[in-house]
Design a protein around this nucleic acid. Structure first.
Lengths: 109, 109
DNA sequence: CCGCATCCCGTCTGATACTG
DNA sequence: CAGTATCAGACGGGATGCGG
């Protein structure tokens, strides 16, 4: 079948790795907005109103730890900006496929 | 940016929907093997040794509930077979992209 | 052969309040 | 403005045992 290349999924299944990196509750949204443009912490907060500061912080930290986004802090004016890294950007086509698949899926139910 | 079509991610973000459907701990593996061929319960168990019967059952039920796989029970011989549905099959290209992305990601660390 | 029931535990997330 | 601290609840998943 199509999916057969040669490696079997294992403890370090690449598919699982990819999923885990983006499957935080709000990570798709965050990546989406960062895909549009660099965003400040507060901007993300306003664009995703139901997320709490605490969780937004956590998700951003994880994304940063995983090299998908970059954090830049400024002192005056006091602000922090987040943007996608190369790796993060390379993920976007996959997010788009998932978005399209999800729309079809939703439409058929 | 690329990801921009017109819909914003919301409570029912299509990306999130898609991720949720496949982000069970063993779902990628299960889908992978079902992508190769129809599999019996016991076959899946042997191919994914570290999964318990309980969890395998749960994951299969969820995948079935979500229309990604089909369950067929036979009485003699006593067995149950699982296979991908149309919807499940349509997900495979995405899984492949994620697999490839994950491999590149792993290689670069 | 296949699956359900029960118990248990770690992780993730939310609410709320406090800080450089 | 952009976090941190603490507490509490929900949930996913592991271990084990019973059952059709």
């Amino acid at each position: 079948m199509i999916m057969k290349t040669e490696t079997k999924p294992q403890e370090t299944c690449p598919v699982k790795i990819t999923i885990d990196l983006i499957s935080g509750k709000w990570k798709p949204n965050i990546l989406y907005y960062l895909g549009e443009d660099t965003q400040r912490f507060g901007q993300l907060q306003r664009k995703i109103p139901s997320i709490s500061r605490r969780v937004l912080t956590l998700q951003l930290k994880e994304l940063e730890r995983d090299y998908l986004i970059q954090r830049k802090a400024y002192l005056s004016p006091l602000k922090v900006e987040y943007s996608l890294t190369q790796e993060g950007r390379s993920l976007i086509p996959i997010l788009i496929s998932m978005k399209q698949w999800g729309e079809v899926y939703l439409a058929s139910r």
